[in-house]
């Protein structure tokens, strides 16, 4: 890449670090940005910095938020007896879009994965246990993805939480295997939530 001017090479290099972006896409994006008006590019760079400056992880549920605790954890109208466990903040948003769920969340920030060597200590499992020992929760809804990692995580959590004597449910198997929860449409996801069953 030595034949590019230094700032161009630097941006291409930076964009390539993003997930799903290879060298060709990084080049295309760079030359696209070069052609855009300066205000537009400034807006983009400022919003990039703003997410790092203003967005934090909620120390209770690990959702992304502007304030800690997040809007959901702070809302007294949300049912504290229901706790929905999801893998990523995107999955939480998908659940919220259904408009059906009135409980709280716990974001694991990942899923167990034998082939990637991701174990329980690498995701927010300890933090989940600590929350449940607080005692308010009556039901934990495991809404991890319907794929190998998500199922493994649900199996593990069901086993881990069983001694606590809390009702543990898994969202319905009606969700097609292998997809990402965040791509599920609202109707499918509402149905899956409604049809949740006890596991473990």
């Amino acid at each position: 890449m030595t034949y590019y001017p230094e700032p161009v090479a630097r941006l291409i290099e930076a964009l390539q670090q993003l997930p799903g972006i290879g060298p060709k896409t990084a080049q295309r994006l760079t030359f696209f940005l070069l052609k855009r008006p300066v205000e537009e590019v400034r807006e983009l760079s400022e919003s990039l910095l703003a997410v790092k400056d203003r967005i934090v992880s909620c120390r209770t549920c690990f959702n992304v938020t502007e304030g800690d605790p997040c809007r959901i954890c702070a809302d007294p109208a949300r049912d504290a007896r229901l706790l929905c466990v999801v893998e990523e903040p995107n999955d939480l948003l998908a659940m919220e879009r259904t408009g059906e769920y009135r409980g709280r969340y716990h974001v694991l920030l990942g899923a167990l994965s034998p082939l990637d060597g991701v174990g329980p200590d690498d995701i927010k499992v300890k933090e989940l246990l600590a929350r449940l020992e607080g005692g308010e929760t009556a039901e934990v809804i495991l809404a991890t993805n319907p794929n190998v990692e998500g199922e493994a995580t649900a199996l593990y959590l069901a086993k881990l939480l069983r001694p606590l004597g809390i009702r543990i449910t898994r969202i319905a198997r009606g969700l097609p295997v292998g997809g990402d929860l965040e791509y599920a449409d609202q109707v499918t996801l509402s149905k899956a939530l409604e049809g949740r069953r006890e596991i473990g």
């Binding site: 082939l115 969700l175 097609p176 295997v177 292998g178 997809g179 990402d180 599920a184 449409d185």
Partner: peptide, 16 residues
């Protein structure tokens, strides 16, 4: 498009 919930691979590409 295999990560779409309604993909033509429909869950076939799961491990094992």
């Amino acid at each position: 498009a295999s990560r779409r919930i309604r993909s033509r691979f429909a869950g076939a590409l799961e491990l094992f």
